[in-house]
Amino acid sequence: MIDYVIIPLGEILGKEYVKEKLESAFKKFSCQRERDLEDFLMQKSIAYEKTNYGKTYLFIDENKLVNNNEFIVLAYFTIAQNSLDISTMSKKKKRKILGEYPGRDSLSSIPTYLIGQLGRCDNCSSLDLSGQQILDECYHAISLAARIVGGNMLILECREHMFEKFYQPQGFKKLYDELNEESLFTLFKKINFEEYWNT
């Protein structure tokens, strides 16, 4: 297992001395299985951060940072607020997904937390840093917002193989049975964030 430190991208953007290190680290981040992760980190993460649309958290190799002053991105995730359109859902489906949500049947949308990106660099194995660890750190970050404003619904999009391999065992369910326009499934999960407040 690799020792890591999680650094919010927004906390280091204003520091000029890390600009070149960030660009270099982002270029070295490779994910052959999911090129969207590479593209987002290189092309979009800073813009999302500057517009406050979403927040990106970087898993940095702690030993290389402390001992060699190297900035190595092992993994990252991006989270944002979202509004889920439920206007076309049947009352039965709303009941199944939302449970005892107040005013459920008359709602056209509900607030959610969006996991926009989540992944690990190819140079880092699951033994070094597991998907479970990355997801738990993501839950912890979202729990800080949930502690203040509430909310318990997570939304994300993923490819079919990732649903079966990773997200379904983590308790995520398909919001719709069919793929969307980008050939992705929209998944949801209700979660009690209280268990993450003291971690």
Rank of each mutant, 00 (worst) to 15 (best):
G54V: 02
T51W: 01
K92N: 06
Y113H: 07
S83Y: 13
D128R: 08
Y4H: 13
I86E: 12
V149R: 11
E181T: 09
T199R: 15
S30I: 12
G99F: 08
S130G: 03
E194Y: 06
F71W: 10
Q43F: 06
L65A: 11
K21T: 00
L98Q: 07
S106C: 04
I155P: 05
Q117E: 13
E62K: 14
K94S: 09
Q81D: 13
F188I: 10
Y76M: 04
Y76S: 03
T112L: 09
F193H: 07
G150S: 13
S183R: 13
E182Q: 11
R35N: 11
G103M: 04
G103W: 02
K92I: 09
D177W: 00
R95Y: 08
K55H: 14
S183K: 15
Y167Q: 09
D61N: 15
R147V: 04
Q81M: 12
D3E: 13
K189D: 08
R33L: 08
S183C: 11
K64S: 14
E11T: 04
T88H: 12
C121T: 07
E160T: 02
D39P: 00
M153I: 15
L129Y: 08
L107M: 15
E11F: 00
K44P: 01
E181Q: 10
K19T: 13
A145P: 00
F40D: 06
M153H: 12
L184T: 06
F29T: 05
K27A: 12
F26P: 00
S143G: 13
W197N: 09
E70I: 02
R33D: 11
Y76C: 04
N67M: 11
E11G: 02
L127H: 11
L156M: 09
G131E: 03
K92Y: 07
A80G: 15
G103L: 03
K15L: 10
I72F: 14
Y4M: 08
K28D: 08
M42P: 00
I6Y: 05
F163C: 01
S143K: 12
D136N: 15
C138A: 02
K21V: 00
G99S: 08
N180C: 08
S130M: 12
I97Y: 05
L98N: 07
F77K: 01
L118N: 01
I191T: 12
E62S: 10
K96C: 01
I7D: 03
C124S: 11
K96D: 09
K96F: 06
E49K: 05
D177M: 04
G14C: 09
S108V: 14
R95L: 10
E181L: 09
D122V: 01
M1D: 07
K93L: 13
D36W: 07
L175C: 05
I155Y: 07
N180Y: 06
Y17R: 15
T112E: 08
F26Y: 10
L107S: 13
N67E: 14
I97D: 05
E49D: 07
S109K: 15
Y139H: 02
S83C: 11
L98I: 02
C158S: 09
G119I: 05
N82Y: 15
I86P: 13
D105E: 15
Y176G: 00
D177V: 00
I46P: 03
E195G: 00
E164V: 03
Y167I: 12
R159A: 03
A47D: 12
S83R: 14
A146G: 09
G103P: 06
Y113Q: 07
K92G: 03
G54W: 01
L107A: 14
I6W: 06
I12R: 02
E137Y: 02
K94R: 13
S24E: 13
G14K: 13
Y196M: 04
